[in-house]
Design a protein around this nucleic acid. Sequence first.
DNA 1: GTCTATACGCCGATAGAC
DNA 2: GTCTATCGGCGTATAGAC
Lengths: 198, 198
Amino acid sequence: MRTVDPVKHAEKKRHITDTAAGLFATKGFDRTTVADICQAAGISTGSLFHYFPTKRAIFREIFEQDSADNEAMFAQARELSPWDGVLLVVDRLSEPALDRALAGLVVEIVAQASRDPELWELAARNERVVRDELAVLFQRAHDAGQIALSVSATTAASWTQGLVDGLYGRLVDPEFDAPEQVVTLRLILSRFVGAEAR
Amino acid sequence: MRTVDPVKHAEKKRHITDTAAGLFATKGFDRTTVADICQAAGISTGSLFHYFPTKRAIFREIFEQDSADNEAMFAQARELSPWDGVLLVVDRLSEPALDRALAGLVVEIVAQASRDPELWELAARNERVVRDELAVLFQRAHDAGQIALSVSATTAASWTQGLVDGLYGRLVDPEFDAPEQVVTLRLILSRFVGAEAR
DNA sequence: GTCTATACGCCGATAGAC
DNA sequence: GTCTATCGGCGTATAGAC
């Protein structure tokens, strides 16, 4: 008989990571102090370090949560025609760029991953998984005659990710109009892979 | 008669910013200490603060140097045909992505700019200048019949920047082949704006 | 102009009572 | 499990001699 309730434990950790994620997104990892997180979460530092060994471990957990939803996304995409599946994935990957808070978190993840080898490895693996799943969809769409690839399916997949990355850069434009940008993104992608423009 | 030699002064500042830029690129701004910069530059903290009022001012100066070369780039582009001019600009904008150290600096600039309103404003202005100059080239290429735009020249220009941004994300791929990626980038852009594929 | 020395505050993490 | 109290160290920036 365990003395700890694993459900409660997980819920508490989740509360901490959710709180911390908001702070990391707005202030950045290095400028967010443990005291900030504790205050925002309504706990003490002693308690926080009961759940996480280091501040960095909190960040890592946020990143892992963030990349855990891919499988569900692709499962959903596989229920559609291949090309519609691609478009669904593009929409989903674009979502964080359209939300200021989430975009800030993504910026921070990139910045941290570019310094921390362990985080870099996690990010690279995640990127590869998405790319390879996307490549399968592209290949099927090609075989089904929905598109006409002139590059490898993997290249098409990788640059689909690149286009989504490019979406973040458009945020600097004060006249940024999210829905319109996503439409343009689809147009560029459609022409790239020889799909009918919609 | 001045007692300070403005040339020496500028050279010394440049030495400090060059040294600091390398450290910011590899360690990030927040994890680079003033002591780090002083040690690498071979000076004392007292001396450093004689040239810059704060650590952040060093970063800002690096950013300003970085965005000062645009005018020369577009002057060069204007000597070519409009579409060749676009391709030249794309190559130049892509260069930092192909160099690990410079890419690290760009990541850091994005991360810092997303928190610091003053830096954000500088970045946005710089982005707009490049976009507008690019838009002129796109419009001329269109009018000259080199391309067939189906979106506004400004949208084409903005997404050209987006594609270059997307290039940075491709760095996570350990099999990243820089020249090949730039070729693909050109292909995507060419199809987007209705240019003949090369 | 450049140095050494140091002020002064804050940070991540720990100790130990309850 | 949660708290309070606190440690040891480091960070930016300044003071003031040379």
